[in-house]
């Protein structure tokens, strides 16, 4: 098969991907045009776009995005780094694993949103409680994935390190961490994803800034265009985070044989 033919097929595939979004837009627009719903429930797609542009122009949107991102970043860094170190230590020491492992597993069973009221009572309603809440969300995927990665480094590689007299630091940086890396990266991805969900949750729960706050406030004023614009923005940011992590993953894990058929 010639290369140009293959390319044309891919082109067609990409077009197929636009069918559903297009249909949704058409249905949306016609529902508005036919006045099936009140304006409080559905506004035209273009209005949402205009609202988005307006919000961006006044700087409201940027400010809210920045304050959400700040929270996510601090919560994620706090939770993920704690999770990473604890997971690493648990993976290296079976005693520590038996000591704290069951407790952490039990804690994971608590739906973390249930902790929100408790955290507010303990830390107040301001920034600190949000960061703590997000860090709890970021902590669990990181601790489990790091632990799994570290304890899953094959025994044959550990043995090899012993044969070559590897001592702690070199052993950690050359054998254990690279071996655990795929799992750690999965942890980072889930951890960041949950952080993003938790920040929205925390902001919906009570806040004076952030994308989530923007949506709650708009809901109370029945401004559905802003709610939809907010939804669009959090989707785009979640999507971008995922893409960035995928790019990093590809670069860092070059050594891995990929089974996604792209090698062939």
């Amino acid at each position: 098969m010639s290369k140009s033919l293959l390319k044309r097929f891919e082109w067609k595939d990409k077009l197929l991907a636009f069918i559903v979004p297009l249909l949704v837009l058409v249905a949306w627009q016609s529902a508005v045009s036919l006045q099936l719903f009140s304006e409080m429930i559905l506004v035209p797609p273009l209005t949402v776009m205009n609202t988005l542009v307006d919000l961006a122009r006044t700087g409201d949107l940027t400010n809210n995005i920045i304050s959400s991102l700040k929270r996510v970043l601090s919560g994620f860094l706090l939770g993920a780094s704690t999770g990473f170190f604890l997971g690493l230590l648990m993976g290296l020491s079976s005693l520590l694993d038996r000591f704290v492992g069951p407790l952490i597993k039990a804690c994971k069973q608590v739906p973390q949103f249930a902790l929100m009221p408790l955290i507010i009572l303990w830390f107040g309603i301001d920034e600190v409680s949000k960061v703590v809440f997000i860090s709890i969300g970021a902590f669990f995927p990181m601790v489990f994935n790091t632990y799994q990665g570290v304890s899953g480094v094959p025994k044959k590689y550990r043995e090899l390190a012993r044969v070559f007299n590897y001592k702690s630091f070199r052993y950690l940086t050359k054998v254990i961490l690279p071996g655990a890396l795929p799992s750690i990266i999965t942890g980072v991805r889930h951890s960041l994803g949950l952080s993003w969900m938790f920040v929205v949750g925390a902001e919906l729960f009570g806040s004076e800034s952030g994308v989530g706050y923007m949506m709650v406030w708009a809901r109370q004023l029945f401004q559905i265009d802003i709610v939809m614009a907010g939804l669009f923005v959090i989707g785009i940011i979640g999507f971008t985070m995922n893409i960035i992590l995928q790019i990093i993953e590809k670069r860092v894990l070059r050594w891995r044989v990929s089974f996604d058929g792209r090698m062939a």
Partner: peptide, 25 residues
Amino acid sequence: INRGIVFQDHRLLPWLTVGENVAFG
């Protein structure tokens, strides 16, 4: 390090290049 070993499975670390693997010890 006065004794070297070659295992049945090559045990090259997949995350290191061939050169880095040879330099492993």
